[in-house]
Design a protein around this nucleic acid. Structure first.
Lengths: 228, 228
DNA sequence: CGTTCCTCTATGGTCTGACCATACTGTGGT
DNA sequence: ACCACAGTATGGTCAGACCATAGAGGAACG
């Protein structure tokens, strides 16, 4: 008897496993539709409540989205959006005080250094970076500035070509949005931040990975002086 | 009219918001209990189904765990386990083909270089690393080897002192477990891997961050030759 | 033939009420 | 002091109902 653990399996977990298996077996990808809740319940021999709880899990994990109504777009459609999941994850665990802001900032620094270096090596498209830069120059409030600043830094992650890194970057920014606005307001003058952005962009365009990483590190030190 | 979207809010999302607010306001942390489902339903004026769906989301995000029965340990208890969430997230999105293994490996390399360097700088406790090393020497199968190998690499992340990084590392390893076993089996001889581990451990003990990062990078190149 | 309008229907979202297994609580007997 | 047993609060599940939504499909009309 190798398995002495009773390890009760709840019904919705079984539904979850069946759905995951079905996705793998049928080779379903983003855009494909899952059967309707009532139909799934009947097929699997469970109640609709259990199916719904499984759907809620998949939705939380950014794997499906649900639309009411009728037609090709209605029902549970497979998507691929890990962003919201990570954002919720970080926000909640920050709220639970089980993660320190310092840990999040350090993680962001790690990611952004890597992404900038990678973008520089890959001769990535930098047009999104330029657009965000212009947006920051036109910003007339801290919130507006932070919005374009976020776009700039997420564009760096996008330019790295790694979607997992990019999703993580977006989530880190989103979960720290409040801190970012406060930091910008405390700073008052944003010219030093602009200089940092220009330097990062130049390094990526010059295909200089090490300079890009250094520029990012220096820029974050400017943005969060209290943490360095 | 900047916001024409009615953006319907489902009941369980409202419950989620209320719960998050309550956690923040009451300063609840891991170990504290949430009210019972029936009580929450009555307090918030919603059905128990909606409360349960919200609970399922929180459970998926690694914020609560539910125990049946009665007593101090029963009911919904706040926890702090982002590990399973991240693991599920990666596994499902890999299954959906919305993430390439290459992206996951790259992410792991980024994390582990950072963690090793940080551990070296922080003069971290390396006893867990030594234990895992001994475990690998005693391993008599690829699975067993990978198990201790995972422990070794997670110990590096733990030693960095950043719990977010550590959780991410653990999830990356878990979601790539199958690949790791295959890689070890293909490699056959594990002496080169052992040498890499010894070098990493030595660098961390010598408080040499740059050598630690280099050692990790070289080691991963040895472990996944097909990807470099 | 095309267009407009209305009805039908499948969908997710919500609620109610019930029953079950579980695991502690408390009581009563020894 | 101990033990056995009924009580009870908990999450887990189910069945069935109703609602709002939004496309599908046909009917009426030009």
């Amino acid at each position: 008897m190798p398995d002495t653990r009773p390890k009760r399996t709840r019904t919705f977990e079984d539904v979850l496993a069946q759905l995951e298996r079905r996705i793998a077996d049928d080779g379903l990808t983003a855009g494909d539709r899952l059967p309707a809740e009532r139909q799934l319940a009947e097929e699997l021999g469970v109640s609709r409540s259990s199916v719904r709880e499984a759907m809620r899990v998949l939705e939380t994990l950014g794997v499906v989205t649900s639309q009411v109504g009728r037609g090709p777009d209605a029902g549970a459609v497979l998507i691929s959006r890990p962003d919201h999941t990570l954002t919720d994850l970080l926000r909640l665990h920050l709220g639970l005080a089980s993660l320190e802001p310092r840990e999040v900032i350090d993680t962001r620094l790690m990611i952004e250094r890597w992404a900038a270096a990678r973008a520089a090596s890959a001769a990535a498209d930098t047009s999104a970076l330029a657009v965000a830069l212009a947006g920051m120059d036109a910003a007339r409030s801290a919130e507006e500035f932070v919005e374009h600043d976020t776009a700039f830094h997420c564009a760096i992650a996008d330019a790295s070509g790694n979607r997992l890194i990019a999703a993580f970057m977006r989530s880190l920014r989103d979960s720290m949005r409040r801190h970012a606005v406060e930091a910008v307001e405390q700073l008052g003058d944003t010219t030093v931040l602009r200089a940092g952005h220009v330097r990062i962009l130049a390094a990526i365009r010059a295909a200089d990975p090490e300079e890009a990483a250094r520029a990012v590190a220096d820029h974050l030190a400017d943005a969060y002086p209290s943490l360095f």
